[in-house]
Amino acid sequence: MNKPLILVVEDDKAVQKLITTTLETQNYQYHTAGTGESSILEAVTKQPDIMILDLGLPDMDGVDIIKKVRTWSNMPIIVVSARSEDRDKISALDAGADDYLTKPFSVDELLARLRVSLRRVRYDNAKLQKDATVFLNGNLKVDYAAGCAWLDGEEVHLTPMEYKLLCLLAKNVGKVLTHNFIIHEIWGNYYSDIPALRVFMATLRKKIEKNSSQPKYIQTHIGVGYRMLRVGDDGKSS
């Protein structure tokens, strides 16, 4: 993983500066947010590797942010908060935080917590690439090794571009992928035609969605991008 991207969610400018300066010394990339609303937008659009989160934000409680992020992302969340009561720590960890650091904190301890989280990210990514040769989601099956897809036991005849899009969504199931992220991954930096992406996505949907007005597998996030929904054994999307 080259130059991990960290999202720093902190409204205290002095603490934010301390954290970002620390990240700069370790060659981490970072984005910052000072409100809950902007933090969720940054998380969706920038796809960071780790979030460092203060719980006491002006517009939203940090625990609510954790819950929202966990509906579509498994990225590590390290809470850095002045709240030191056990009930606050338990509440954040139960909501989905991976670690909890109490203010005031040492720079060395923050970096150590980051290294632990990054090792987990690297391990998870490596394991996913090694083990996931076949993707199963409801009645949809993608065999990466064979380069084929099936729906309800029948092969779906996809164009090379449709298959690439399907694989990208499948390998990021549950995550919102922005238009720019998809375009970069499929076509590279030299291409930026969002209308063309919408056309390709529409043709893919026609082949895997029985009811295009009520999509089961591919959800549109208007103005943002697309997400592959996880379909449970009961056939319901989430």
Rank of each mutant, 00 (worst) to 15 (best):
K171C: 07
G225A: 07
Y30I: 12
I194V: 15
H31D: 13
L128R: 14
W72S: 14
A97M: 07
N172F: 07
Q47R: 09
P104H: 08
A97V: 05
K236G: 01
K103M: 13
S192H: 14
G62M: 02
S81E: 05
V176Q: 13
S117A: 15
I66Y: 03
L53H: 04
A14N: 15
T32I: 14
M60W: 08
Y190N: 09
H184P: 00
N211A: 10
Q26V: 06
I52C: 00
V44Y: 06
S237C: 05
S238R: 11
P160I: 06
S39C: 02
P58I: 00
M201W: 02
N137H: 10
K103I: 02
D233Y: 07
H179M: 01
I194S: 10
D11L: 10
F181S: 06
V63Q: 04
L158K: 12
V63F: 05
P48N: 01
R115N: 15
D108I: 04
G96C: 02
G96F: 03
E162D: 08
R198P: 01
L168D: 00
Y123S: 12
N74H: 11
P215C: 02
R113M: 09
Y123K: 12
I222E: 09
Q214L: 09
R120G: 15
R113E: 12
V199P: 07
R87F: 12
